[in-house]
């Protein structure tokens, strides 16, 4: 991959929050490149910092959060140097747009669906009047909403959850962004609707040449949509790789744990695998591998020194001492070793 292919690049990013006089290290020196046209999934538990990480690229950190170090490069500019809202408005929506988690709360209940999409069109496309309205109706049609002319005049409460998420996506895409960040786009939705929404995002990505970043806690969901996966734990990326590499050949114990706890892989009559303990308190400094206290097979060094990234392949790297040549050989749990064969339920 040459540098031209990198559309967004995080370099040694540090994000801190100040809460009741204490400092919380939400993101601890994280580097990640996002390639043009790819779909990247950032996976982690709640509180791992995955939302904060991506929100920093849109200038959407809460007031008590600061970027304490590092750079975010986009289009030759360092986003961390932005200080004024005006600067952010050249990026937010226009270049990087976001689909939020809960379609029940991310739409304004007092404005018609059409008006909310029209707002994005007026701000970001050079259209006025009838032409703008036409573009908004087209945006509704493009996300698979039937009878867009009539739906344009309706309010959010007249839409079901899945349809609202389509509206949110229409509004995000109407800004003509280069990057679309989807923050848990389907968590609040039914499984059947979830599959449809993921299909829709995938189709839009192809049609509009978008780069998409998915944020999710459910590894099962991203198998279908992601080209690459970054696993995040306690404000740090612990494993990055192509989708197949992370699913079929995971290296970090935390990735093993996330895969193991999927109910799809559960065996009836036995307990589901569940990760022991709780994530570390990020108010304190984290020593060594943040996952070590919850990892039954942790090595001594895991508690002392933060592991560097070890390269498994040019596209796959993991931050675990297990990949050090001196480390003992630890195999991933038996039931996640053969995901390829297990895949696919019979559908008649």
């Amino acid at each position: 991959m040459t540098n031209d292919n990198i559309i967004l690049s995080f370099q040694d990013l540090d994000i801190r929050f100040t809460l009741r006089g204490q400092v919380l290290n939400a993101i601890r020196s994280v580097s990640l490149d996002v390639y043009r046209g790819e779909s990247l999934a950032i996976v982690g538990e709640s509180g791992s910092g995955k939302s904060v990480f991506t929100k920093s690229a849109m200038g959407l950190l809460d007031a008590n959060g600061v970027i304490a170090g590092g750079h975010i490069w986009y289009g030759g500019r360092d986003l961390t140097t932005f200080t004024r809202e005006k600067e952010w408005l050249t990026i937010r929506g226009k270049e990087i747009a976001m689909v939020m988690q809960d379609p029940m709360t991310s739409l304004n209940p007092l404005k018609t669906v059409g008006d909310q999409i029209l707002e994005a069109v007026l701000l970001h496309q050079d259209l006025r009047g009838e032409a703008a309205k036409k573009a908004a109706v087209q945006a509704l049609a493009a996300v698979g909403i039937d009878d867009p002319e009539r739906r344009y005049k309706q309010y959010p409460h007249e839409f079901s959850g899945g349809m609202r998420q389509r509206v949110v996506i229409a509004a995000a895409v109407a800004c003509r962004p280069k990057i679309l960040i989807c923050d848990e786009p389907t968590t609040a939705l039914d499984v059947t609707i979830q599959a449809q929404i993921l299909d829709l995002i995938k189709a839009l990505q192809k049609k509009l040449d978008l780069t998409t970043i998915y944020i999710t806690h459910d590894l099962g969901v991203v198998a279908n949509v992601a080209d690459r996966i970054a696993v995040m734990y306690a404000g740090d990326i612990v494993e990055v790789g192509r989708c197949e590499e992370v699913f079929y050949d995971p290296k970090h114990p935390y990735t093993w744990a996330l895969l193991s706890s999927l109910p799809q892989l559960g065996v009836k009559g036995q307990d589901l695998y569940s990760i022991q303990g709780t994530p570390p308190n990020l108010f304190h400094e984290v020593l060594g591998d943040a996952f070590a206290p919850r990892n039954p097979q942790a090595l001594n060094i895991d508690f002392v020194e933060r592991p560097p990234f070890f390269e498994v392949s040019p596209t796959h790297k993991a931050r675990t001492w297990l990949l050090d040549p001196r480390a003992p050989k630890v195999e991933p749990p038996e039931h996640i070793r053969h995901l390829r064969q297990k895949g696919g339920y019979p559908h008649g």
Partner: peptide
Amino acid sequence: FAHPLHPYTKALLSAIPMPDPVGEREKKL
């Protein structure tokens, strides 16, 4: 799961996301 009969059950089963990228891409929803 082994012998779903009703088309709606089959649709629900096909919507289950599986942790298997290759299988998922081949899957028909």
